[in-house]
Design a protein around this nucleic acid. Structure first.
Lengths: 194, 194
DNA sequence: GGATGTTGAATGAATGGTCATTCATTTACG
DNA sequence: CGTAAATGAATGACCATTCATTCAACATCC
């Protein structure tokens, strides 16, 4: 049991994204996901240990993909400012490209049980490390100030990006998320002060 | 039914905070809240329409209180920079003062059903308006730049504060949250750039 | 080549546990 | 007494998970 690959494995994960995005976390019963994947209820348990495992695997697959892409893309950029811009751009781009996934990761999965959120947190940590590296490079190369705390700065970057995406979804993605990249970069770099 | 005041009304809300903080949202059954409040299960339905109503009322009572305090305090400050500092300070102070409430509003209530979260969002909006006013005053008085979007800036402030509080809770409140006020204010005002 | 056997994937109806909510009854108070 | 407040056992709805059964594909032998 619990194969972790195959056509149906992916079909179930993709069905879960669609069902959760459409009906919300609390209405995403196993049987509904199964129906959406054209699979019997029991089949899900041949590929996943339980319902929680479906959700964790979903996040792991999608986020893991994104972190790999982002790491690689950033490593090919020299300038810390350009790295930061690209980080924001990639983050927004990946969610704007698949707004069902955006709803699921940004809104719905945050309603999951502690055990699930704990796993999600571990996966997210890998992304936060990438952010830290960008900031540290900027400090070392002298593009950024050296008198602030990296963790505080990273929380600011992540918090700002996260809040921006969440409001974008809450407003039904009515405006282009990508338009926010440069305004945010500007404020992060230069602050509000005149 | 559904009186919205009285000794037991408050006892139930406070019990809900304690139970949710201690056992988590998903283990906060009505009967457990009732027991913690020294009240019978059915009594809760004399004061609240249903379980969701307990959660919404909880947030409304606690957050409403905070917004009133903050509005008043800020109106007595002239300098926009000082207003922003005080906003951050009050936000952190109110959560550092009652870390059970912090857990509930910051972590647990975010797992609630859509209907509950919608109500919570409405209440939060009043707070976001206060933030907007602080930013607008800063722009008008020339303390802040006038070439950024107020909404973008507010998302940055709120996102940063929110993420900071969440990590503080996730790290079991091991360091003084208040220590973060000035570093955050500095980064918001001046940015990362050298 | 067709009859028969074997395997494991897939099915979906049935189960069991969990709670929110109700309401018949009791208690307290004026 | 009469009324309102409080009680808590009983109810019923919901849903993840199980597992006896079916099905499909391929192998083996005459």
């Amino acid at each position: 049991m619990a194969k972790r690959t195959g056509e149906k494995y992916e079909a179930i994960i993709d069905a879960a994204v669609r069902v959760i995005a459409k009906y919300g976390y609390h209405q995403a019963q196993v049987s509904r996901i199964a129906r959406e994947a054209n699979v019997a209820d029991g089949t899900i348990y041949l590929y996943f240990a339980n319902k929680d495992d479906v959700l964790i695997s979903l996040f792991n697959e999608k986020m893991g993909q994104f972190i790999s892409n982002a790491s690689k893309a950033l490593s090919e950029i020299e300038s810390p400012v350009d790295q930061l811009r690209e980080l924001i751009r990639l983050h927004f781009e990946s969610l704007a490209a698949d707004y069902q996934l955006a709803i699921v990761t940004q809104i719905e999965l945050r309603q999951s049980k502690p055990e699930v959120r704990k796993e999600i947190g571990l996966i997210l940590k890998r992304y936060l490390k990438v952010m830290d590296q960008v900031i540290e490079a900027g400090v070392e190369q002298g593009a950024f100030r050296d008198d602030f705390d990296v963790i505080t700065a990273r929380r600011m970057i992540f918090g700002t990006i996260d809040e921006t995406v969440t409001s974008w979804i809450m407003k039904d993605c009515k405006y282009p998320l990508m338009d926010q990249v440069d305004p945010i970069l500007d404020l992060l770099l230069n602050g509000f002060s005149r």
